[in-house]
Design a protein around this nucleic acid. Structure first.
Length: 426
RNA sequence: GGAAAAGUGGCAGAGUGGUUGAAUGCGACGGUCUCGAAAACCGUUAUACCCGUCAGGGUAUCGGGGGUUCGAAUCCCCCCUUUUCCGCCA
């Protein structure tokens, strides 16, 4: 969430930023109105508390001297009642401010291009080596999956529902190979520490990273226990350090971790629902960084490079988009999407999203660092990116590596993991 | 799932319903001493919010939330976490 003090000092700046994100800038006015009332109430209630504390000390002294304090006690009784009323009004106002802040998006960084939709995103670069070069018409991943006997959407629908694909045989092995290749690459080449997080988290964690309260309907819940299935490993990994303070010299802290990801995708039926393009459960290796604010944008660039290294090694054609203000997610200050090429769909598919949240999540989750031993803690910047999600990458991988005879060639770097080099039609 | 115990400042650890933001010890920081260091000694040592240009003043915080009371770390209720024991279990 935004810093109330900064909002108070720069209301016009934040209004413009929120408007650029296609959100309602009047939220800022509502926050500031409530903030004025809040401070009035604090003034009143705290001066009453001050008198009560003083008189209470008198009462204590009188009691000690065995003097009568009945009239003071009676007086303080009414003061205490008044305090109780004001305190409850104050807590209502504070709840309101907090709710407004929780529903107010992060401000885009100044380097983010203005725009109102995905059409205004800026393509930063493109890497096309390995683009499908066959002379035949490429099959799509669903057809390939069926012919090769490696993906079973029908049985997934039977046992769980649509959007829960089953990987079979070499498909399952390939999936596992991708995950292991990603993790090995990030831990040994890119300096991330691996974690294997819980796939279910509590409500505070979901608030910490900003999924709650605004996106409650996007998540699977376990109501009996007040738990949520994670939509991304970002949630448990970022929350590892909730309510903690780093030493400055420990930053940047880099984690990578695999998790299954669960998304209800409520309201997105009909859009890209074919096969792997939009599913309720998928696999992803997530990258998370806790950075000193001074270096956080350099860390964002290097995170995108880490993702690109994976795609280059796999020889998957991709492009990098810098998202415009209007397409930027609620939490992000700046975000690059990494899209992989699907020859059958004849378009790019989002396979990774690398974002700098600045201190937006850190403030919610109270994740700080001490710049020096003697200085006050400040909020860190949090970043994360998919490194990568397997499902759409699998689409690109299968489609780009298909051969005229219907087989699919496994990229060189994956063969130590799969221990096979082709997948033949079943 | 059942039973018991415990949760106090960076850590350890006192604490009677009435100047207790909280003894004491350790640690950390500053200083004295020293050529320097150690030791010793002296001092400092939480956070958030509100008012104030500053100086400063005020309020809150003893796992969390309610309650009793003129007044709660201290009494009552609920919840959470940890530890131990029992049960179940991959």
């Amino acid at each position: 969430m935004l810093d109330l003090k900064l909002v108070r000092e720069n209301p016009d700046y934040y209004k413009a930023k929120i408007e650029s994100k296609l959100d309602d800038p009047r939220k800022i006015d509502q926050i500031l109105e409530a903030d004025v009332r809040r401070r009035e109430l604090i003034g009143e209630v705290e001066s009453l508390k001050a008198t009560r504390n003083a008189v209470t000390a008198d009462i204590a002294a009188k009691k000690k001297n065995k003097e009568n304090a009945d009239h003071l006690i009676a007086e303080m009784k009414t003061v205490s009642d008044k305090i109780k009323d004001l305190d409850s009004e104050l807590s209502d106002v504070e709840t309101r401010i907090n709710d407004l802040l929780l529903y107010t998006p992060n401000a885009p960084h100044d380097s983010v291009p203005k725009g109102s939709s995905a059409a205004d995103n800026v393509e930063v670069r493109r890497w096309e080596t390995g683009t499908f070069a066959g002379t035949f018409k490429p099959l799509d991943h669903i057809e390939l999956g069926k012919r090769l006997g490696i993906l079973d959407f029908e049985r997934g629908a039977k046992i769980s529902g649509s959007g829960f694909p089953v990987y079979v045989g070499k498909g399952a092995a390939l999936e596992r190979a991708l995950i292991n290749f990603f993790l090995d690459t990030h831990t040994t080449n890119h300096g991330y520490k691996e974690v294997f997080p819980p796939f279910v988290v509590n409500e505070e964690s979901m608030r910490g990273t900003g999924q709650l309260p605004k996106f409650a309907e996007d998540m699977y819940t376990i109501t009996a226990d007040g738990l949520y299935l994670i939509p991304t490993a970002e949630v448990p990994i970022t929350n590892l350090h909730r309510n903690e303070t780093f030493k400055a010299e420990d930053l940047t802290v880099r984690y990578c971790g695999y998790s299954a990801c669960f998304r209800r995708e409520a309201g997105s039926y009909g859009k890209e629902t074919k096969g792997f393009l939009r599913v309720h459960q998928f696999n992803k290796v997530e990258l998370v960084k806790f950075a000193n604010p001074e270096g956080s944008y350099a860390e964002l660039e290097s995170m995108v490079n880490d993702v690109e290294n994976i795609l280059k090694a796999l020889k998957v054609p991709y492009r990098i988009l810098l998202l415009c203000t209007g397409d930027l997610s609620f939490n992000a200050a700046k975000c690059y999407d990494v899209e992989v090429w699907s020859p059958a769909e004849n378009k790019y598919l989002e396979a990774s999203s690398c974002s700098n949240f600045q201190d937006f999540q850190a403030r919610r989750a109270n994740i700080r660092f001490k710049p020096d031993a003697n200085s006050k803690p400040e909020f860190v910047h949090t970043l994360n990116g998919s490194g990568l999600a397997t499902s759409r990458l699998m689409v690109s991988l299968l489609e780009n590596n298909q051969n005229a005879d219907g087989s699919v060639t496994i990229p060189e770097v994956l063969r130590p993991y799969t221990r096979f080099s082709t997948i033949e039609p079943a």
